[in-house]
């Protein structure tokens, strides 16, 4: 689940990319990115590199 800086009370469930599964823990920062899935653009969240490793 991703909390948005722009609207703190709103959460969305999404896919996090750019990190090992075990590194995706509560409190890590991510940013919006786009990938292609089945030929269509899909919003995902990319792990912020600056915080890897925590």
């Amino acid at each position: 689940m991703v909390k948005l800086d722009e609207q703190p009370a709103l959460r969305m469930s999404s896919t996090v990319i750019g990190a090992a599964k075990d590194d995706v823990v509560i409190g890590k920062r991510v940013h919006l990115d786009w990938i292609e899935r089945s030929g269509a653009p899909m919003p995902v969240f990319r792990f912020d590199e600056s915080q890897v490793p925590s």
Partner: peptide
């Protein structure tokens, strides 16, 4: 008021 898995406060 927000009775879902994602929005439960």
């Amino acid at each position: 008021g927000r009775p879902s898995e994602t929005q439960t406060p």
